[in-house]
Structures are given as structure tokens and as C-alpha cells.
Write a protein that binds this DNA or RNA. Structure first.
Lengths: 99, 99
DNA sequence: CGGTATCCGTTTGGATACTG
DNA sequence: CAGTATCCAAACGGATACCG
């Protein structure tokens, strides 16, 4: 088995979805909004999600070049999952509140 | 850091919820329905979920003693999350189908 | 800006054997 | 039946430095 879990595994994956759901984000934007992720982990997770067909990476030939990431149609399907997780998270007492 | 993620982390946790959602299950029943989990992991995850107040363990003084596990009211709140994940899972192509 | 490369600690998880 | 104990491998993840 290449990876132990599927696309929902890992500490950061759902947070990346949450941040991409409203619309495209740049790499540096994600770094900021995710708060504390290392560049290595962010690149690795984005790679994984792109290979899974859930996220699309676009490079613009501006100067300097810019990049952004957005959810594919398939990736948008995570919306209800994130919403349900957020609702569940708020239903928990503070001590266990981190889903 | 005691544990990196919260109650949704780990490969098996959501599967345990899925199997407990319909009603109480015995330890051996979970072993069977989870297919491939090791006894160590199952015990560890159940412990974690019990400490988080999402699962309740009941021991019956029969002979031999039996045990079962059920979701608490709090744990039932995972229902919509599991449902959303199942829906998302079915929307994925087979190759990426494991959520 | 958008990443890679390297190093290393921590956590997760599988296999197996064993026990009350 | 319902777990524990032990060992080990792999994945996850943080820090930091560096590059086109």
C-alpha cells in the first residue's frame, strides 16, 4: 500500500479543502491561512490532491510567474463533508473540540 | 504534543463510527466488520473514543462476560459526517475511491 | 514567489503471540 | 470472547536551508 489512508488522511488535508472551498488560492496564501504548515507538507499534500484529481494547479506566465490552486468539480464534492465536520466540531465540548 | 490530530484522525476511526452508527456492536463484531484491523488498533481507537465521550463501553456480567460498544449522544453527531463522506466516496472514480 | 532538499523526531499501524 | 504485550516498519510532520 502506497499510503495508509485515502485522500482524507493526514492532519492538513481537510484544512486545505476548507481554505480552497471559497475559491482559488495561491501557494503563499495557503501557507498563511493554514498557519503553521511547513512548505514541504503543503507541497506534498497539494501534489497528492492533484494526483487524486481533486485539486487543479494553474501557473500563469506573468513576471514573476504566479501559481494558484483550486478545487476541481470532483473536489467541490468535499464541501458537504467539511460542512458536516464543522457542525460536528462545534457540537463538541471545548476540550475535545478539535476534530 | 500528545496526538497530532483530533478524534477524526487515523485510518480506522471513521470506519468504527460507520459500524457503530446502526447500533451497538461487540468487540469481535467490530473486528469482523472492520476487516483487517489488528486487535491492538481496535482497542486503542475504542479507548480514545471512549475518553473523548463519543463511545460508551458496556460490560455484561453474563458467563462468559460480554462487552459491547455504542455511540453516545455526542457520538451520534458523527452521523451526518459519515453520510457526507460516503456520498463523496461514491462520487469518486474507483481508483481514488477510498476516502 | 513557489517551491526542493535534507534531517530527524513522533505517531500510526501491522503482525504476532499471549492471557484472564 | 475481549482484550494486552512486544516488536518493528512506514507515514506523518516540523525545522531549516536553499534554489530558479
Amino acid at each position: 500500500m502506497a499510503r495508509a489512508h485515502g485522500v482524507l488522511g493526514g492532519k492538513w488535508t481537510t484544512l486545505i479543502f476548507r481554505d480552497l472551498l471559497p475559491g482559488p488560492q495561491r501557494y503563499s496564501g495557503l501557507m498563511r491561512s493554514l498557519g503553521g504548515i511547513s512548505p514541504r507538507m503543503l507541497a506534498e499534500r497539494l501534489d497528492m490532491l492533484e494526483e487524486a484529481g481533486l485539486v487543479e494547479r494553474r501557473v500563469y506566465p506573468t513576471n514573476p510567474p504566479t501559481t494558484d490552486y483550486r478545487l476541481t468539480a470532483l473536489g467541490q464534492g468535499m464541501g458537504p463533508v467539511i460542512a458536516a465536520m464543522a457542525a460536528f466540531g462545534s457540537s463538541l465540548p471545548p476540550a475535545t473540540g478539535e476534530a
